[in-house]
Simulated scan of single mutants.
Amino acid sequence: MSKVEQEVSIGRCISILYRQSQAHFSKELQSYKIGSGQYAVLLALKKDDGVTQERLSTLLGIDRANITRAVTKLQNEGYILRKPDEEDKRIWRIYLTEQGRELLPILEGILGEWSSMMVKGLSPDQINILAKNLKTMTENLGYEWITEE
């Protein structure tokens, strides 16, 4: 174990960052009647409107039960709608509503502010190295990054 690992637990730091981010997003999103568990769905739909719940689950690395809860909450609040696939009526596709599209810039602003707070004091090179290392760590745990084609 290196000296850094002895002084700072990487897992503990990631846990603290996650808990603090969830609290921050919950507070910031409270007036929109959504929680920290739903904003990622809206951002994913910005890139891939009309995606299936199964695809959302894969893209976000979130289990299907949690995706179902998030989609239901967002639908109840009017941010998304579900429509059957035109070719296969068993498949439901998820789309942003106008209300959902209007929320996107607000979400992006909240996320941008949070990111700026987290990396304050780091150089662009340090941020790039950190991002690369975190990506490698998630891949080591079996997460497969799905890139846009």
Score class of each variant (00 low, 15 high):
K3A: 11
K3Q: 10
V4A: 01
V4H: 01
Q6L: 11
S9H: 00
G11I: 08
R12P: 05
R12V: 06
S15W: 03
I16E: 02
L17I: 07
L17Y: 03
R19V: 02
Q20W: 09
S21A: 08
Q22M: 02
H24F: 07
K27R: 13
L29C: 02
L29N: 00
Q30D: 07
K33F: 12
K33W: 08
V41S: 04
V41K: 05
L43M: 10
L43A: 03
L43V: 09
L45F: 09
K46T: 04
K47I: 03
K47L: 13
D48Y: 11
D48R: 10
D49P: 10
D49C: 14
G50Q: 07
V51A: 13
V51N: 12
Q53M: 11
S57D: 00
L59H: 06
I62T: 14
A65F: 11
I67M: 05
T68L: 12
A70Q: 14
A70L: 14
K73Q: 10
L74P: 13
G78M: 04
I80C: 13
D88H: 02
K89I: 02
K89L: 07
I91V: 15
I91L: 14
W92S: 09
W92D: 13
R93D: 12
I94T: 11
T97H: 10
E98V: 15
Q99L: 09
Q99T: 10
L104N: 00
L104T: 00
E108F: 05
G109Y: 13
G112D: 10
E113I: 13
S115D: 14
S116F: 07
S116Y: 09
S116E: 13
M118F: 10
V119Q: 07
V119D: 11
K120R: 06
L122R: 10
P124E: 09
P124C: 09
I127W: 04
N128D: 13
N128Y: 03
L130T: 02
K132S: 07
N133H: 03
L134Y: 03
L134M: 15
M137D: 00
N140K: 04
L141K: 15
G142F: 00
G142M: 00
Y143M: 14
W145K: 15
W145R: 15
I146F: 14
E149G: 07
